[in-house]
Design a protein around this nucleic acid. Sequence first.
DNA 1: GTCTATATGTAGATAGAC
DNA 2: GTCTATCTACATATAGAC
Lengths: 230, 230
Amino acid sequence: MQYRIMFEQDPRNKQRRRAPSARSLQTRARILDAAERIFAERGFEGASVRDIAARAGVPAGLVHHHGGGKAELFRRTVARRADELSALRLGALETCRAAGPLTLSAVLTAFAGPFFHQVRQGGPQWSAYARLVAHVSADPRWRPIAAECFDPTAARFIDEIAALFPDADRQRIATGLVYSVAAMLAHLTSGWRVGALDGSGGEGATDLDRLVAYCAAGIEAAIHCAGKSE
Amino acid sequence: MQYRIMFEQDPRNKQRRRAPSARSLQTRARILDAAERIFAERGFEGASVRDIAARAGVPAGLVHHHGGGKAELFRRTVARRADELSALRLGALETCRAAGPLTLSAVLTAFAGPFFHQVRQGGPQWSAYARLVAHVSADPRWRPIAAECFDPTAARFIDEIAALFPDADRQRIATGLVYSVAAMLAHLTSGWRVGALDGSGGEGATDLDRLVAYCAAGIEAAIHCAGKSE
DNA sequence: GTCTATATGTAGATAGAC
DNA sequence: GTCTATCTACATATAGAC
């Protein structure tokens, strides 16, 4: 039998609550799923709390109750899968390291692969999440959210790349990773564009290997480029 | 707020009008400038016609009169500089061609350079325009606008690159250009990110040469990569 | 073309019953 | 926790005087 041991000494923990019921957790998950879809589809302002509530099948008041307001709901929606994604990325990195000496392509595959795989195999919610991240990434207003959710892991991968190129300027590596993230998000969200521009309209454009090849060659070139500043 | 997004593209709706007065043209330009700033800053739904009117220094009614409604105003705002940008890009391409045999780097410089230069030298309106284009590019709802404003020129540059690599799969080239556009927009809009991730907070991250080096190497790698599909 | 006033709908948020 | 009803603010859009 398990029961809760609680201490009341710490005033900061005064707002500790009972463990949420299974129903409550389910409701929260439904709301987050709905928010993920609607925010991804229409952006922050384009989405309405009412529409999110309707998709989740709950009254609008519950969305405020569980989400903490629209802006906080947005932040929580981004943060939820960011934690999972970071764990997958760091796990992939360690798996690569255990398999042998790291290469730039391996590091980039560890970075992009998990997101890529989840979008392809993880169901429509992950596909929506990719579009949501693209919104966050494209809009400087969400910089605090991006910093909270993605910067620590990004910095970790910059460290790994920097270790592979000891003489490289760290800023160039960071720039290269920013470009690569942009390319990755373009891939994950804009398959239509690849098809439309070359007239084939085909589906076969999503290819992790080619994305990694692009990013790895690009980063190496950016590191070694002697380009002058304007 | 949610509503239908519609565009006035039907040629049957064309009526012949008198030549607009100088004052009218000036008012239209002020409204487009204001819309460019506000749409870039807050996205389509986050922007309000009232805020645009306030920034332009005109009554809100005039924005509707000249802009044709919010959605149509958005489309016109994107299209205005797109025409100028396309002309600059195609001009740069012909200048390069006249100077000697084209290279991939030269083609990419002709593509990215004019936008890059306008953002750096063309004043705050061009900087806002880059953020606006990033919004358009990140949101599939604006696909019709992107197709109208950017696809013809993009297809032209794909042709040029395809001519340089006669044996290359055209779809791979298109994919590489999509990645490169994403990287270019990330560069033009997210200087903060480059600084924040490597801890320097510096400004010197904008460098056309390095961007082109990144994109050129990436595209070549994507073309030649033997990567299997998943 | 310009500007004021206003029509009409919807937004986020909350109070309070259950 | 859940849900109904509602408050207040602000959105787009237009009618009509000048």
